[in-house]
Nucleic acid binder design. Structure first.
Length: 483
DNA sequence: AAACCGTGGAC
DNA sequence: TGTCCAAGGTT
């Protein structure tokens, strides 16, 4: 590579940055903890989205020690809505390591920083360079785009090997004693000028020697293979409003310790029919009639039984409300988030049939998986939720609480994690209402991952956005007298 | 290497 | 309305 061009690039870019850098909350000082938090929040997340979260987070957890000692629930709540929630739990785990192994001080040592949970090659480089001015590269999407264009690199930036290659290049470009500013300059240029769609070459400080532009490839670079589209899933959720001592409260549950939305709270729900049903599927005109006819006409047929519910039937744990539910049919519920959308009598009939099949499945699976017996009373609404790799079509049904199956009969016992560090397992005991019995003779204790909550407890528990929207909509429209 | 992990803005 | 993708990390 041309040493002259490299020196030019670094010099001009650094000069440009020092004149044009944005004022951002994490640029107030070089406190490595503040830098660390900002870099984790900024992973796959835009600056404008991060700023308010960052301000609140730093006020609540101003030091690594404060973060380490906070209840996990509070940390997740502070992260609620930001997404990629393992970032929050990893950050707290990292803070605990810093507290225990480094006396609460983020170490000025690349290997030590890299070993922290949730700190990968980019974040380690960012912390080392920005907080400690160490000459380490910090290669993110911006950097790969900027360098791909300037040096006209046609490697696929979706490949891990490309990041490694660009890291070496980036490190070679760091000006003496200016690692922090230079790395930030690279990212700032990518964010403000050398943007993905329409790069602002005319205002670019290094346009004159940009090989990508000189080759007329500024709109083609960087090369990046397309991501696989997310797979559709139908989710059947239960909006269970309590009566008696739980009047006006809703039954929610906490997800297990790993995987999607780990440790977040949600409405109880189960996987629906494989064929999509909701608005997303309808708008694409895919397989609607077929799936509904197949699922609906034979409500209690073998085709609907999963392995779990078949096992439940074999063990005599078939939910007793099923037959009653089917005979009653499903009446349209009120307060839906999304209008039905079916314009014809026939479509309405199809919807009713699909709802009946959903209700059957929801009832069976909640009973089989969690020993929770409910009686659905009507369709309530739906919501779409797009993850990176999945699209949920959530169909929400209102239901009345029946009872909890005695614990000995529970068919599955997933890991719900109770963190030893922060004493989550004490939450149930502190709440004082976790083990009361249901209202049926068979009634057993509420399982530890479930809670009855009112609107007030929404402030304490962290929900992913899809359930946040559904629950807020419920609290707004609930009349407080029925159910 | 490839899949898994959220969410919202911009165009 | 669909598509891209953002200061990525873990498994």
């Amino acid at each position: 590579m041309n040493t002259e061009a490299a020196a030019y690039f670094s010099r001009e870019l650094l000069g440009w940055y020092r004149e044009n850098k944005r004022i951002l909350p994490w640029r107030m000082n070089r406190d490595p903890y503040r830098i660390w938090v900002s870099e984790v929040m900024l992973q796959q997340t835009r600056v404008d989205t991060v700023i308010p979260y960052y301000e609140r987070f730093m006020e609540k957890f101003p030091t690594a020690a404060a973060l380490a000692e906070a209840p996990e629930e509070e940390v997740l709540k502070a992260w609620e809505g930001l997404g990629y929630y393992s970032r929050a739990r990893n950050l707290q785990a990292g803070a605990s390591e810093v507290l225990e192994r480094h006396g609460g001080v983020v170490p000025d040592n690349k290997d030590a920083v890299s070993s922290l949970r949730g700190v990968g090659p980019y974040t380690a480089g960012a912390i080392m360079s920005i907080a400690f001015n160490r000459p380490e590269p910090a290669v993110d999407g911006n950097v790969m785009r900027v360098l791909s264009r300037f040096f006209c690199l046609e490697d696929d930036i979706a490949k891990p090997s490309t990041r490694v290659k660009i890291e070496k290049l980036a490190q070679s470009l760091i000006p003496e004693g200016a690692a922090g500013d230079f790395n930030q300059a690279l990212m700032e240029l990518g964010a403000l000028v050398c943007t993905p769609k329409s790069p602002g070459c005319l205002t670019c400080p290094v346009m004159a020697h940009c090989e990508g532009r000189m080759a007329g490839k500024e709109h083609v670079l960087p090369i990046k293979t397309k991501a696989k589209p997310p797979r559709p899933e139908t989710r059947l959720a239960a909006l269970i409003v309590g009566s008696g001592e739980h009047a006006g409260k809703v039954l929610v549950r906490q997800r297990q310790s790993s995987g999607l939305l780990a440790r977040m709270w949600e409405l109880p729900h189960v996987m629906g029919p494989t064929e999509p049903f909701g608005s997303a599927a309808r708008s694409k005109g895919r397989g609607r009639r077929k799936s509904i006819a197949a699922a609906g006409t034979e409500v209690s047929g073998e085709s609907l039984l999963t392995a779990d519910s078949t096992a439940a039937a074999a063990e005599g744990t078939e939910p007793p409300f099923l037959q009653t539910t089917q005979q009653q049919g499903i009446a349209p519920g009120g307060g839906g988030l999304v209008a039905g959308g079916a314009g014809t009598i026939g479509a309405d009939a199809d919807r009713q049939t699909a709802h009946a099949a959903h209700v059957d499945m929801l009832c069976r699976e909640l009973f089989a998986q969690d020993g929770l017996l409910v009686r659905p009373t009507g369709w309530w609404g739906e919501a779409e939720h797009v993850f990176s790799h999945i699209v949920w079509d959530v169909q929400v049904y209102r239901a009345e609480f029946g009872y909890w199956l005695a614990e000995e009969s529970a068919l599955e016992k997933p890991d719900y994690g109770g963190s030893a560090v922060n004493g989550d397992s004490q939450l149930a005991a502190e709440s004082g209402v976790s083990y009361e019995t249901g209202n049926a003779e068979e009634g057993a204790a509420t399982p530890p991952q479930y809670r009855w909550i009112g609107l007030e407890q929404m402030r304490e528990l962290a929900f992913p956005n899809v359930f946040l929207r559904l629950l807020r909509d419920y609290w707004e429209t609930a009349d407080g007298f029925t159910d």
